[in-house]
Design a protein around this nucleic acid. Sequence first.
DNA 1: TGACATAGTGTTGATTCGACACTAAGTTGG
DNA 2: CCAACTTAGTGTCGAATCAACACTATGTCA
Lengths: 223, 223
Amino acid sequence: MREAEAVCPAGWLGVSADVVVFSVGDDALRVRLQRRHRTPFAGSLALPGTLLRDDESPEEGAQRVLGGDVGLDRVYREQLYTFGRPGRDPRGRVVAVAYFALVPASVAAGLPDGPDAAWHAVDALPPLAFDHAEMVAMAHRRLSAKLAYSTIALELMPERFTLSHLQGVYEVIGGEPLDKRNFRKRIGALECVEPTGETYRAGNHRPARLYRRRTPGRVEIIK
Amino acid sequence: MREAEAVCPAGWLGVSADVVVFSVGDDALRVRLQRRHRTPFAGSLALPGTLLRDDESPEEGAQRVLGGDVGLDRVYREQLYTFGRPGRDPRGRVVAVAYFALVPASVAAGLPDGPDAAWHAVDALPPLAFDHAEMVAMAHRRLSAKLAYSTIALELMPERFTLSHLQGVYEVIGGEPLDKRNFRKRIGALECVEPTGETYRAGNHRPARLYRRRTPGRVEIIK
DNA sequence: TGACATAGTGTTGATTCGACACTAAGTTGG
DNA sequence: CCAACTTAGTGTCGAATCAACACTATGTCA
């Protein structure tokens, strides 16, 4: 346990909360990564994460990580999986409770790319520290699966959005194009969005109607 | 951390693996519970579980718990959720990685009810220690949901079984009766079972054909 | 040999799903 | 001002799936 103590000072458990923070932008599903400065994996990219404090639940730890990364208060978050293979952290024993979070594009824009933290397209990730690549892959699968049976995609949308924009989010996550008419039929049947009456103008073409969520903050399981 | 050290001796992490072990028998979904002898919750029933050893993954811990409860080697097992609310263990800080496992009725019969461990119908559980009732409830929901989109129910079946038996398992977990013809159509379409050619005689009525899994040990995601 | 109990088997109507193409409305540039 | 451009928005039809439903088959047992 000599090495483990380097990450396990008094008052801390060897349990971390790591968060796969997703957003959609530039026609890609993107994940927030931080540059590590300390060993191990110094210089590598890693998920935002923290060791749990004494008297802090994994949920709270995840929320603290999100809060630390500029006001990511109030974003969708759910537990993903717990990774506890001995040796996953070269320093010693750390069990990681992984979460994933969804950030609307409007909020993501407030988190600019910098030397220490930036958005990276999930389809073209560099090697990540620890087993974080596995976490990202699992989060991506889970998110993709949930598109089919929940309204979770709305958590990635700004307050007002067009149906084309929403369809783009589905396509980027699922990785395949969708039929426009079938998509709109499906969303309409869910009764999860409603038109605001406003329109959105962009480019030399017909403006699109803007929609908003009917029950903000509520992810419904459907069918 | 004074109190926590009671459960966190050197060489151990304050992380446990707790397993919701399900089987189906007597027309009920049943869970394996152990009688606690030590404080806290002395005298209460609890899920089988253990603190992780140093250099042991949560998966290995869960498997060790299963192995300790008579030869529950080779049963289906998956990670359920991680419970880490501070205070969930009155002794101190323990983060519990919960699993659920499925035991075929034939194997479950080899684990008799005794003073220290017994099967209990999930529909009529006594109060459980810690947050174990929550774990059982979540495992039940997850199992029930998975019936619809996977072949997981086969993990609860003995090597050979009748379709009526299989239907009973679906009904007991889902909590509602199913139509016999639709059920058999659905199972047939999955191509996950095949007749053995044998029959099963029980009672004064027509014998039933016995089936076996086509790909033992493989849980398929369907549709 | 007749009563009994569970095994086993198809059809039909309703619903859902997937494929598919054109018109609408605003912008822009000549 | 009008023609070209670009994305928005809309409906039908055939296929597949799903849910409801009842009778015959085959063994045991008295």
